[in-house]
């Protein structure tokens, strides 16, 4: 491990926590004050049988808050959104990497944010880029259907992007009621009567599409087909810009 372990001793334990951001910060707190660096940090839901003894780190709001506040104070203001974004990413072992990154940040200060060539720092930035890139694509690729005046969309992203999509769609569709269901993370952004929240939800049963809805879908599909120029046919270029994994939720391919 890199320069980060000057504060903590590597220990052969595994931290288990409740999967929340406050829970993660509680793990950071525990690591710092026990001066141990775990082999990994796992949300209890995803816990696999392991060779290492696991200790459960309880979520404690006041400790979490102290860690949270220390980030802009001891590292830099921009470090906080970076950490909290990567926490929602699909980076493997993100909790451990973020802990190492924070320890490195406490030692190096704001400088850590500019150490783009460092193996750990570059990994953290890459995870952030991956999440923001996926969000950027979904801003365009999300498809709503109208069900009796309310709009609903389904997405299957790798990163937990709902919090990053919320602002854009609320601003865009402020007068509508809508819902975006994230099937991967089993959560939905629900916007109703001008208030929004993200709620856990297992499955989503959608009613049959109305005739009018079917007509607009058909028109969109025929527009999509028509707008392509035969003499420029280039499916490889299309796949580069719009990877196949997004197609399953897009009207033009269903």
């Amino acid at each position: 491990m890199s320069k980060s372990n000057n504060l903590a001793q590597a220990a052969d334990v595994l931290y288990v926590y409740d999967g929340s951001l406050a829970g993660f910060y509680s793990c950071v707190f525990h690591s710092i004050y026990s001066k141990t660096l775990p082999v990994d940090i796992c949300p209890e839901e995803a816990l696999q049988p392991s060779l290492y003894p696991a200790i459960y780190i309880a979520t404690e709001q006041d400790k979490a808050e102290r860690v949270r506040r220390s980030i802009p104070q001891k590292i830099a203001a921009e470090a906080l959104p970076l950490v909290e974004t990567v926490f929602l990413s699909c980076l493997e072992h993100k909790e451990l990497h973020l802990l190492e990154f924070l320890l490195m940040g406490y030692a190096q200060g704001a400088r850590v944010l500019k150490m783009l060539g460092d193996p750990l720092v570059s990994k953290i930035y890459a995870a952030q880029q991956h999440l923001l890139g996926e969000k950027q694509l979904l801003l365009g690729f999300i498809r709503f259907s109208d069900y009796g005046g309310a709009l609903a969309a389904v997405i299957t992203p790798k990163n937990f992007v709902l919090p990053f999509l919320a602002g854009h769609f609320i601003s865009r569709l402020s007068g509508e009621n809508f819902l975006i269901f994230d099937k991967t993370h089993k959560a939905a952004l629900v916007y109703q009567d001008r208030t929004a929240e993200i709620i856990p939800i297992e499955t989503l049963e959608l009613p049959e599409a109305s005739n009018e809805e079917c007509e607009y879908r058909a028109m969109w599909k025929s527009f999509y087909k028509t707008i392509s120029i035969q003499a420029r046919y280039n499916p490889k270029c299309r796949r580069t810009h719009m990877p196949k994994r997004y197609w399953e939720n897009m009207t033009e391919f269903n």
């Binding site: 365009g140 392509s228 280039n234 499916p235």
Partner: peptide, 14 residues
């Protein structure tokens, strides 16, 4: 700007 899809010729549909 924002691309909403890409047609078979690889061009952005916005």
């Amino acid at each position: 700007g924002c691309c909403h899809s890409f047609s078979e010729d690889g061009r952005c549909i916005s």
